[in-house]
Nucleic acid binder design. Structure first.
Lengths: 229, 229
DNA sequence: CGGTCACCGCATGCATACAAGATGCATCGA
DNA sequence: TCGATGCATCTTGTATGCATGCGGTGACCG
């Protein structure tokens, strides 16, 4: 269905460039040009230009007039901003869900359980891509339950940025997947019991662990480093 | 400084079209074309095209291949989504602020008081544009205090959409500005005392009133309309 | 008289051409 | 030697031309 053949040039330029940024082929700080990408993909600059514009809106590229496009490097403040926004949006979904009729909540909980089964299986089979995909499904399902397109779109963009942040720290030991799964289970468990506060707390723990894996140092409580302003 | 002379064609196309959508010159449901705008602004289709792309990303336009650009009409679900997202983001700022050192909180509270003074003066002078601008500053200042660029950008887009929603219901009587100001003061008051829960409550009341003004049906005194949670 | 199909206008998608700004370097002068 | 200046080059910004695809209209056929 999604064969590359039936895709517009603009779409190809967008996906290809985005993929290269997200998987690290284009490291942060790199300066790329429309011409380069256009040549590489055998198309004119026009579609590439539109792709660049879109990527800039998503915060992956920064365009400098007459100079080129800079692949933005992930900064500590961006890591913090992404995690804070994720906590806000996912936490909101959890809270909203816990205040919904139990029937609705059960539907979502079931869906989440299903995803967790898949994730568990992926972990057992040591299928890393499947595990990552299940992880994605888990969080997306959660946010979808809030039925707010604006927040859902924001969240999609946050996930992309998160992907890139994870690259820098591939040191997540073999233990980390188990931790992730356990934290997911804790969240769903609290959700199943309808205890919003605990669900949000579990979510925070989960994201804190993510932060620790990304910055390499598990953030305690202070973190009053170079706050400046 | 921001004279139209020193602006790129792309920027002109973007601002002009966006302004026309936001102020209602281009009503929802209208189908516009790149050529129309290009002719009107005496430029080629290329910059207009890029402006359209950006406006689509912001949710103001919907592009149909080979057909044209549809000015999206505000739907009830969009109103709800915008207000929900606003409450989430602004509420987060309030909560975060209440958990910050009192010095930081005081700085923001002072800034907000300053904005309120301006808004009060604008109300007395019956200067509607100034009042609206102060309203904008108030909320922006609040969100800025969270120091999260991602949330700030999201919020800017939310404000734009809100502007357009307000057009449909210009029935906000002469009493509404007073109500707005009072609600702003209530929020700042709670913030000044550092009581997060109350500040968030006041915010919710404020947004509920907005919802009432937009959908045309005031949520009454109880405000027990969309309970949901 | 109703339905179908071919044709035509219109709008976009993409490629190409041209203009203008910015950078870096070589050169020139003090 | 060091700093200023002018040029070569690169990249974006904008305009224009052509191909493609969609929709509507009107003629034609059953």
């Amino acid at each position: 269905m999604t064969g590359t053949g039936g895709m517009s040039a603009k779409e190809r330029a967008y996906r290809d460039t985005k993929a290269r940024i997200l998987d690290g082929s284009l490291p942060g700080g790199d300066l790329i040009t429309e011409g380069q990408v256009a040549d590489a993909l055998a198309m004119s600059r026009t579609p590439v230009r539109e792709a660049f514009l879109r990527l800039e809106a998503e915060g992956l590229l920064r365009l400098f007039p007459k100079r080129g496009a800079l692949v933005v490097a992930v900064s500590p403040s961006e890591v913090e901003a992404v995690l804070e926004a994720r906590e806000l949006v996912e936490g909101h979904a959890l809270t909203k869900l816990c205040g919904s009729p139990e029937a609705d909540r059960a539907v979502v909980a079931d869906a989440l359980h299903e995803v967790l089964d898949i994730q568990r299986a992926a972990l057992a089979a040591e299928d890393e891509p499947a595990f990552a995909e299940a992880d994605r499904r888990f969080h997306i399902t959660l946010v979808e339950s809030a039925r707010n397109m604006i927040l859902l779109e924001l969240y999609a963009s946050l996930r992309d940025r998160q992907l890139r942040m994870n690259l820098g720290s591939l040191d997540r030991g073999p233990h980390r997947p188990h931790e992730i799964l356990a934290q997911h289970e804790a969240i769903v468990d609290a959700l199943g019991r309808g205890v919003a506060d605990e669900a949000v707390l579990r979510l925070r723990e989960h994201l804190d662990a993510t932060r620790g894996a990304v910055v390499g140092r598990t953030a305690g409580a202070g973190g009053a480093s170079a706050l400046g302003r």
